[in-house]
């Protein structure tokens, strides 16, 4: 089954201090598909994503990429596994001390030790893939709008052709038109390039557009999972509450 399951959270527990954020989470991202994790704020979506990106370590359980436990890898093994991933952060998290093209080429220049000429050439290609003109390449991130920063963040995530992409609230804080454009770019990665995408969001419209599989996270575990089509006619009470944004229902608000 490893062949199809690119990323697996197995019985993952994670807490901070006394609060338990993830409580034996079981979830799978399948190859070449787009998994969207829905959930209210404070329900552990970000933590689940950061565990998969190797930014946090689980207290118990395993996070497996291509069947290999991230926590049990040597430093080199971990690096090799994570080199096949890319992540777009909620605030883009561009390095403001570097021009746009060096941001995009960062992995090539610093982790893969490419030459600056090659790094720049590949950065320009990646910028074109996210529909940005070459003239942004020498600008500073602070000179770009929020939507353009997100595109640069996406270019940085895809520049080394990763197989597994993580998106942290990709459309939050964007106008509807830019949000659609970002969604289209994410879909492009999955449909055309065969990437596996894992997105956390609370934007239902975006989830409908980019999701193949949906998982609803609440109280630290999966409350519901199924195909994205179910979002149109949710039968599960928790999913129904979330999709329609009802205050009353099985989903407890974060304390």
């Amino acid at each position: 089954m490893i062949g199809d399951d690119v990323l697996v959270w197995r019985e993952v527990r994670k807490g901070f201090g006394r609060s338990i954020v993830l409580d034996r989470l079981d979830m799978t991202a399948r190859r070449g598909r787009s998994l969207v994790i829905l959930g209210a704020s404070g329900q552990g979506k970000s933590v689940a994503l950061k565990l998969a990106a190797g930014l946090l370590q689980p207290d118990a359980g395993q996070v497996l990429i291509e069947g290999r436990d991230l926590a049990r890898q040597s430093a080199a093994g971990r690096k090799a596994l994570l080199a096949r991933t890319g992540m777009l952060f909620q605030g883009a998290a561009l390095f403001d001390s570097l021009p746009v093209w060096e941001n995009v080429a960062f992995r090539l220049l610093n982790a893969e030790r490419s030459s600056r000429a090659e790094g720049r050439a590949r950065a320009l290609l990646a910028l074109r893939r996210v529909r940005l003109d070459a003239d942004v390449a020498d600008k500073r991130p602070s000179q770009l709008s929020g939507g353009m920063q997100k595109r640069v963040g996406l270019a940085r995530a895809i520049v080394a052709d990763p197989e597994l992409l993580f998106f942290d609230e990709p459309t939050t804080g964007l106008d509807p038109i830019t949000a659609r454009a970002i969604d289209a770019l994410i879909l492009d990665q999955v449909r055309r390039l065969g990437c596996t995408a894992v997105t956390i969001t609370h934007d239902i419209a975006s989830a409908r557009r980019i999701g193949d599989d949906i998982a609803l996270l609440g109280r630290g575990r999966i409350l519901w999972r199924g195909p994205a089509a179910a979002l149109d006619r949710p039968e599960d009470p928790a999913l129904d509450q979330f999709v329609h944004g009802r205050a009353e229902g099985p989903l407890a608000l974060a304390p």
Binding site: A53, L82, G86, G91, A93, R107, A157, F166
Partner: peptide
């Protein structure tokens, strides 16, 4: 500078870029 990088997730971003 490093504090601002921490709070804007730039340090996390470094790690996801194998650095």
């Amino acid at each position: 500078e490093i504090g601002a990088m921490r709070t804007s997730e730039q340090i996390d971003a470094l790690q996801t870029l194998s650095t």
